[in-house]
Amino acid sequence: MSEQLVPVSEIQSTDDNVPRWGMAIDLDRCTGCEACVVACHVENNIPVATEDEAAMGRSSHWIRIDRYYEGTFPDIKVKYRPVLCQQCDDAPCEPVCPVYATYQNAEGLNVQVYNRCVGTRYCANNCPYQVRVFNWFDPEWPEPLELQLNPDVSVRPGGVMEKCTFCVQRIQRGKLDAQAEDRKVGDGDIQPACVQGCPAEAMAFGDLTDPESKVSQWAGVGRSTQLLGELGTKPKVFYLEKSD
């Protein structure tokens, strides 16, 4: 597996008061239960593809579980790796967008602006992690499931690219709640749906520029790596490799 090429201690913010959001995932704890996938679908109004659509490669997940099998049965080891948008600092998806619908914001989020997107799909073709999904059609939910849509997240129309946002709606809410109570956003105040839903607590989310935050602590340990970090994408998701 890839080594960690950009240590977490080198991740800088443009301004002291601006956080740089990142995630750390402990593969020792991940059991591959896919609770994160379900939580993500529910939180972000992601439609569930039918069997036929999935067969055509049109299933849409903002987070998926990659499986790796080592050895042969019965001496087999299984490793699960949740793969979501790595929110790269040098994101290959950004420079190829002809309409500036995807860009890096000050907090290090790789933002996708749905109403600016014209659906060229260049970004998805250039993403080495294959985490961007295209809406081939307007999403539909069988009745009465449209009633459970999250009002804090828009429903993306057909012809638009979408991907993991680190639950930007929760980030905005966390910041506004802190502002209303006249305090700073504390570590752990903001949790994306996948982090909140993980029963094994295998995921940590927070500010990578704060050395005290849980995510920085996790990302700083010896078995911390970045997925395909050798490509120079500078991902902000750190994987804590399985200790044998």
């Binding site: 914001n105 000050a106 602006v113 749905y114 109403n115 828009s154 905005q172």
Partner: peptide, 8 residues
């Protein structure tokens, strides 16, 4: 005036 403040 970051896009992600309103559009998500």
């Amino acid at each position: 005036d970051d896009c992600a403040v309103c559009h998500f």
